[in-house]
Design a protein around this nucleic acid. Structure first.
Lengths: 140, 140
DNA sequence: CAATTCGCGCAACTTTGTTGCATTAGTAAA
DNA sequence: TTTACTAATGCAACAAAGTTGCGCGAATTG
């Protein structure tokens, strides 16, 4: 289910950022590398079988990974952060999809161009967050 | 600062929805009618001078107003709901702008067309939430 | 192998929002 | 105006998500 490659990749990525390759850090990042969809703090906690990690540590590891740009945090309307690995395709800004039935969140490839938007006078654009809602293939 | 008209309008709108024109309901909706930008629960609490409303009541009034379509809830990355009156211009779906310095949130007029988005096969579109981030005119 | 210090784990706290229930106060009818 | 009905309020307690402080252990470096 989760080959060693993920563990190895995780360790390599962490070292490349100058961090210590802690057991937990490696396990968390490896787990994230193996996920298709974005996962919540709770889901990660539940899937770290065998290992029962401290909640605070998990929060801090996730924050660290996000700060280093290895993963990204996703806002949602349920006030829960979701996390997803920054694959090459997602290094740039991209939209997210959230299923209104099963609450699954996945990353979409693109973002509509910003020139379709007009901001009030004097406002400066920095970035945009787009979440598409609907039904995923399993819930349709 | 807040003419009676807002109170009167608020009372009228509430009755039109079949609700009781309670003192607090009227005051809250009147306050929202007077706001340019979207406000948080906390901000409303602070601005309801003289009246020190129960937190729970405030939450319930806001939820009721949202359920009746008189206001709308806005999601944000700081896990705090913001509320804004449904003026005519905002009855349809629209985008929101959030200032990354002062955290101000305002409603934008439009939403880019959805035809620029491609969902994975089998996924069904329902709606989209777009938040533009940047600096507002005061913070530039 | 020893020293350093980064990161973990525990405890306590904060913020935001919700639920249950008794009481109050709008509203409409007498 | 008074009465009766019930929607809505206010209190207390709870819940979920996330944060802060701090001592200790373990990953790394020399």
């Amino acid at each position: 289910m989760m080959p060693n490659t993920y563990q190895d990749t995780a360790e390599e990525l962490i070292r490349k950022e100058g961090g210590r390759a802690t057991g937990i850090r490696v396990k968390i990042l490896a787990l994230l590398l193996a996920q298709e969809q974005a996962v919540t703090h709770r889901e990660i906690e539940a899937r770290l079988i065998g290992q029962q990690p401290d909640r605070v540590t998990l929060y801090r590891v996730l924050q660290w990974l996000a700060d280093k740009g290895l993963i990204h945090k996703i806002t949602s309307d349920d006030r829960v952060w979701r996390f997803h690995v920054n694959h090459d395709a997602y290094l740039h800004q991209h939209a997210h999809f959230k299923c209104t039935r099963c609450a699954k969140v996945v990353c979409l490839d693109d973002l509509p161009t910003k020139r379709h938007l007009t901001l009030p006078a004097g406002y400066r654009f920095q970035s945009m967050e787009l979440t598409v809602k609907g039904l995923c293939a399993q819930c349709v």
